[in-house]
Simulated scan of single mutants.
Amino acid sequence: MELDLAKEQLPSTQSKVNDHTPDHINQQIERETEASVNYYKRQGEGEIQARINELDYEWDTERLMKVNMASVAALSTLLAVKGNRKWALLAGASSAAIIQHALQGWTPAIVVFRKLGVRTVDEINREKKALQNLLNKPE
C-alpha cells in the first residue's frame, strides 16, 4: 500500500524532467534531435559512429544538476568555514534542491538547463538508438 501511495505522489524517474519542462522546450529539443538524425542519414558509417561516440559523453540533466548543486554546496561550505557562517544556508539550499529534483524532477536550475537544450538521458539514448538503426539498416 505504501508503494502505491509513493507511485501516486512521485513522478516516473524517466519522465520527471519532461513533465516539468514547458511543452515548447520539450518540442524544440525533440526537433533538434530529429534534425541531427536526419543530418546523419546522409552521412557515412564513420560519421554516424563518431556521433554515437559523442553521445556517450554528452552530459544529461541529471549529471549537470548533480555537479552544479554539489559544487555550490562544497563552495558555500568552504566559505562558511573560512568566512561568514551565513554561507552554510546556501549549502543547505543546494542540498534541498538536489532532494527536490530527485523526488519531483523540478528545480529552478533544471528550467535553465532545459532552456539551454540540455537533454535527459532518455532523449540522448533515443538519438543513439535512431543512429544505431541507421547503421544496421539493410541496403
Rank of each mutant, 00 (worst) to 15 (best):
N38M: 04
V111R: 10
M65C: 08
E30F: 12
S76I: 01
D23G: 01
E45P: 07
A74I: 07
K137W: 11
A35D: 11
P11Q: 04
M69R: 06
Y39K: 14
R119T: 02
V17R: 01
K128R: 15
K128P: 00
R42Q: 15
A88P: 03
I98R: 02
K7T: 08
L78C: 06
L79F: 14
I29C: 08
K129G: 00
L55C: 03
N18Y: 00
D60C: 10
G46D: 15
G105Q: 02
L135W: 15
V111F: 12
Q14F: 12
A130I: 06
L75W: 09
M1L: 06
G46R: 14
Q28R: 15
K16S: 08
S15I: 00
W106T: 07
L89G: 05
D4M: 11
L79E: 05
P22A: 04
V81K: 15
I52M: 08
R63Y: 14
E34C: 01
N26S: 06
Y57G: 01
L89N: 12
E139F: 07
L116N: 08
V121W: 03
G44P: 07
G105N: 03
N84E: 12
E47K: 13
E32M: 12
K16P: 04
N136A: 15
Q100C: 09
R85I: 03
T120R: 02
A80T: 06
R85Y: 11
S12K: 03
E8C: 05
K7R: 14
L131G: 01
L10E: 01
T33H: 08
